[in-house]
């Protein structure tokens, strides 16, 4: 199937007619379909991506359309099939590896970190690893400690990787093409709580980048900086704060490495207040990194200390009330924003 026909990387995805309402899951599936159609070097592999249809039904129907050679079911061998993705990328293909969830990526961490992230540099620039790894991430579904990790901030620590986090329908639909057009290993984190969300695809949009943050809601009084599965929570919080007369700007980081520092700086300069919302644990989190960038760059523009809303420092518990208490929520975000704007009841 994968023949010697070699279109230019990054061939434009098929354009669709205006304003299509679709789920995040369908948007990711469409992005896979586009990629498989556009480039014969592209193939998808992972556990249960084929016959089963993907553990989150993202790749449902693709094996019928593209066959088992390009929609490749793998054994439960995370290290081997991630490493095989690296090797296949070195060998001239454009693999998309699905790791069922980020939790299992720990069994492939050696390949991701010691090989994918390091090959380019330790070969003096001779090797490029154009590999895309898709992973479901995040908590919120009472799956307890081993199935609820948010490790995108961890992965963002590693030079040599690019970390992209689609939070909207547009990004779910088009980030994959941007990742495949890139010669570096890209990890795409899809928050499991987003798959069922529906939204309108921006009419006429045919491509997005994986380099820049995006303002999802402009505002004057404070910037809420977030990404991924926390974005809807932040937008909900912003809506309720608006009712109190607090005008919040919501910045979606979209890419955690490289971090779009310019966008962070511009927004915080504009509002003078910042709250970072991150489903990772607080200590050593991506939120800590963003806070530091703000302190380094816009300290004198701040009107209040930076605040963070992160996950409580516990392995995620099973019971719903405990899990809810551990995770960032619109209510906690609202409280944090009220504090930084001095409207927390005593201000």
């Amino acid at each position: 199937m994968i023949a010697s026909v070699r279109p230019e990387p990054g061939a434009t995805p098929s354009t669709r007619p205006a304003a299509v309402r679709q789920s995040y899951r369908d948007a990711v599936r469409e992005s896979l379909r586009d990629a498989l159609r556009a480039d014969p070097r592209v193939f998808l592999m992972g556990e249960d991506v084929g016959r089963y249809g993907g553990s989150y039904a993202v790749s449902k129907g693709l094996i019928e359309e593209f066959g088992p050679e390009r929609i490749r079911d793998t054994p439960l061998s995370e290290s081997a099939f991630v490493g095989a993705g690296i090797g296949a990328a070195l060998g001239g293909l454009r693999p998309i590896v699905e790791i069922m969830t980020v939790n299992f990526s720990l069994l492939a961490l050696d390949q991701i970190m010691n090989n994918a992230a390091s090959y380019c540099h330790m070969s003096g620039g001779q090797l490029a690893v154009p590999l895309v790894i898709r992973l479901a991430t995040g908590a919120g579904r009472q799956l307890a400690a081993q199935h609820s990790h948010s490790l995108e901030g961890w992965y963002a620590h590693i030079p040599g990787l690019r970390i992209a986090v689609p939070a909207t329908i547009d990004d779910a639909r088009f980030m994959l093409a941007a990742a495949l057009a890139c010669s570096d290993p890209v990890l795409l984190f899809e928050h499991a709580a987003l798959y069922n969300r529906e939204g309108d695809l921006t009419p006429g949009l045919t491509a997005v980048d994986i380099d820049h943050a995006a303002v999802r809601r402009p505002g004057r009084d404070a910037t809420v900086i977030t990404y991924g599965g926390s974005l809807p929570k932040c937008l909900d919080a912003a809506a309720s704060l608006a009712a109190e007369g607090i005008d919040v700007e919501v910045l979606d980081l979209r890419t955690l490495r490289p971090l779009d520092e310019a966008a962070i700086v511009a927004s915080v300069r504009h509002t003078s207040r910042a709250v970072i919302v991150d489903e990772g644990w607080r200590s050593g989190s991506l939120a800590a990194e963003v806070t530091t960038r703000i302190v380094e760059q816009v300290f004198y523009d701040l009107d209040a200390p930076v605040a963070r809303v992160c996950t409580a420092e516990v392995p995620i518990p099973y019971a719903k009330h405990l899990e809810d208490a551990a995770l960032p929520s619109p209510a906690r975000i609202v409280d944090a924003v009220r504090r930084v704007v001095g409207r927390d009841g005593d201000g």
Binding site: A80, A88, L90, G91, L93
Partner: peptide, 20 residues
């Protein structure tokens, strides 16, 4: 990394096979 080359070799071979 002891054994870390094996999965990569498998992938290089996968590319060789798929590219005929």
């Amino acid at each position: 990394i002891v054994a870390a080359g094996l999965p990569v070799a498998v992938g290089l071979a996968l590319a060789q096979k798929l590219r005929r």
